[in-house]
Design a protein around this nucleic acid. Structure first.
Length: 585
RNA sequence: GCGCCCGUAGCUCAGCUGGAUAGAGCAUCAGGCUUCGAACCUGAGGGUCGGGAGUUCGAAUCUCUCCGGGCGCGCCA
């Protein structure tokens, strides 16, 4: 509809070139917007205002000329000049009911488009280190990533969802050590827990699995473990201390023994994270292991590529990337003086892999604290001959939990932090996903548990679900009265939907495909949440203003068709959000 | 100090690539159920869009600057 109108206006404008207008106009300039106010008709165009300067004529005069030159169309009832020089377009009422027909015909596919042109997108999100359970911040990234993926899919993109597993770094060694120490403790050993270790209860649970699997074969005495170690913090350096402990563990158990603990801890964490996400309705096409990436030689290949292009140099025994020449603030270390690579080297290789696998667009959903990371990865891509624009980062601001106005303190390494699982169990998946998506991703989120849990009128989740359930309820009532919905009678009588509330509902339904496209392009799932609230509001208003099941059969069926259309679109929208659309609640 | 995000009604937030009189929810106040679900609806009050300057027909939106809040700035990830 929108593009149709833009085409008509472009025709009108080009016919004026040479008379009213001095030169040809780029069709991209001609944008039609949905009118904000119903009195302004259905669509509005500001092209006359934009052309006023070059044409050196008053905008209203140009607008008048465009309206006069507008080719006739069966869709347009009338076009008029308003305000400073806007062109307001009123559609014929058939155009409104045509939308409803489309909703009912296309069903679940209403709102889909091919706008993305099949662009191959890899969407990486969550990618939390497998060193602990997901917390509430990861939950936001999960909800956002999953819904963004849905939005891109229905707007004609080929979407691949991926979770990058950081299973090769030092953090995993620390988890392995933490697990082993808890395992020793459980067998009665008394030893201090490193200040830098993972203290969460889940570590004890993994230690218990270790005991179950390996019995006492990995036991060593506290004296063996602690002999000759440096001081832990606060007297000593906690990093040195924990590295020494890791080395000690390797020495006492051998590489094989260490790996046994490592593999068990990793598998346990991945199972926990995977189950958690799956229960939250978040699925991935692939879980991409950093270790496998490293084993494949991809890291060396990426470094070789950088080397070949002269983007590397050695300084102070380390290998550096000339990031500052590719848009970053300063150069970055890839391989430390001790020979170990930083997290950055495999990340470069991973992103190069994404390009090599044929993805045109690389979207990373990251926590806001990773914003500095984007410039260096993009710089590395550019240095390797890839287009920097292909990488796009969606930075998620932080989540603060509140319980009835009281902030719940959260710390990362501390024993007590709220996990995603705890949050989901307390407020439910629907409210959880909805609340995560209510706010723009670059807005810090205050998540109030009491509000999310409340089954009262101030909880916006139920407001939308209620509209869906109400339609289902009406259909049940219809059956109870021994009546049947007659789709063809409805279709013949859509012109009867002429009340202000019905017109408003039709307009909202027509807006949905545009909204979905806009939300996808702006990477803004929250726009969909707001739209659904507005759609539900128009429906509730209509519901309160008129009775659907009336004696007049043509009118009754037309109204039921509209109600079913509303239900369909609410269902489609909630589906994209990953929120259920119940028939009763 | 530098970089990123934010600042809009009492509170929490929308406001699309600049457009017409800046909008919701909650809270407050006043109304609406013998009728398809009142988890709903109707109405009212409430604003120097953080301050200032600029760009132009037009700025909450773009630019600069200042103020305030959050987050980064490591041979951690």
């Amino acid at each position: 509809m929108k593009s149709e109108l833009e085409r008509l206006l472009a025709d009108a404008v080009s016919s004026l070139v040479g008379t009213v207008l001095p030169q040809a106009v780029d069709p991209a300039w001609i944008n039609v917007e949905r009118a904000r106010d119903a009195s302004h008709g259905d669509y509005a165009c500001n092209i006359a205002l934009r052309l006023a300067k070059t044409a050196r004529r008053p905008p209203r005069e140009i607008a008048q000329a465009i309206v006069a030159a507008l080719p006739p169309s069966p869709m347009i009832a009338r076009a008029e000049v308003a305000g400073a020089g806007f062109i307001n377009i009123h559609l014929v009422s058939d155009a409104h009911s045509a939308v409803l027909r489309q909703v009912l015909e296309r069903g679940e596919r209403y709102g889909e488009s091919a706008a993305g042109g099949g662009e191959r997108v890899i969407l990486e999100f969550v990618s939390a280190n497998p060193t602990g359970p997901l917390h509430v911040g990861h939950g936001r990234q999960a909800a956002y990533g999953a819904t963004l993926g849905n939005l891109l899919r229905v707007t004609g993109h080929s979407v691949h969802r991926e979770y990058y597993i950081n299973d090769a770094g030092r953090q995993m060694d620390i988890l392995t050590l933490s697990t082993w120490l808890r395992y020793l403790e459980a067998a009665g050993a008394t030893l201090p827990f490193p200040s830098n270790g993972y203290r969460g209860d889940y570590v004890q649970a993994i230690a218990a699995q270790l005991e179950l699997r390996h019995g006492r074969e990995l036991q060593r005495s506290a004296a063996q473990v602690l002999a000759g170690l440096p001081q832990d913090a606060p007297q000593g350096d906690k990093e040195q201390y924990i590295d020494a402990l890791i080395s000690r563990m390797r020495a006492l158990l051998g590489a094989g023994g260490f790996d046994q603990v490592f593999e068990l801890a990793l598998a346990a964490m991945l199972a926990d994270i995977g189950d958690d996400l799956s229960a939250f309705g978040v699925e991935f096409d692939r879980w991409y292991s950093e270790r496998e990436l490293a084993r494949s030689g991809a890291v060396e290949r990426a470094l070789g590529e950088l080397e070949a292009r002269g983007a590397l140099y050695r300084k102070d025994g380390a290998l550096w990337f000339r990031a500052s020449q590719y848009g970053d603030d300063e150069d970055r270390v890839l391989v430390r003086a001790n020979g170990q690579s930083t997290y950055f080297a495999p990340d470069i290789a991973y992103h190069l892999q994404k390009r090599e696998r044929g993805f045109e667009r690389l979207i990373d959903v990251l926590g806001a604290d990773h914003h500095g990371y984007v410039a260096r990865v993009r710089g590395a891509l550019v240095a390797m001959g890839e287009p920097g624009e292909s990488l796009e980062a969606c930075l998620m601001q932080f989540v603060s939990l509140f319980r009835g106005g009281q902030r719940i303190p959260m710390g990362k390494r501390e024993a007590q932090f709220v996990t995603l699982r705890q949050l989901r169990e307390e407020v439910g998946n629907d409210a959880c996903r909805f609340f995560y998506l209510m706010r723009s991703h670059d807005q810090q989120l205050d998540f109030d548990l009491e509000l999310a849990k409340s089954r009262t009128n101030d909880n916006p989740v139920y407001y939308i679900q209620y509209a869906h359930a109400r339609v289902a309820s009406v259909m049940k009532q219809l059956e109870a009265r021994q009546l049947q919905y007659d789709a063809s009678m409805a279709s013949d009588n859509l012109a009867r939907l002429d009340s202000p509330q019905e017109q408003a509902a039709l307009r909202e339904l027509a807006r949905y495909p545009e909204l979905v496209l806009q939300a996808a392009r702006a990477r803004a799932p929250h726009a969909l949440v707001h739209y659904l609230r507005e759609l539900a509001n128009t429906f509730h208003t209509w519901y309160n203003a008129s009775t659907f099941i009336v004696e007049d059969a043509p009118l009754r069926n037309a109204r039921l068709a509209l109600a079913l259309g509303v239900r369909q679109v609410i269902g489609n929208g909630l589906g994209l959000l990953g929120v259920s659309a119940p028939d009763s609640m």
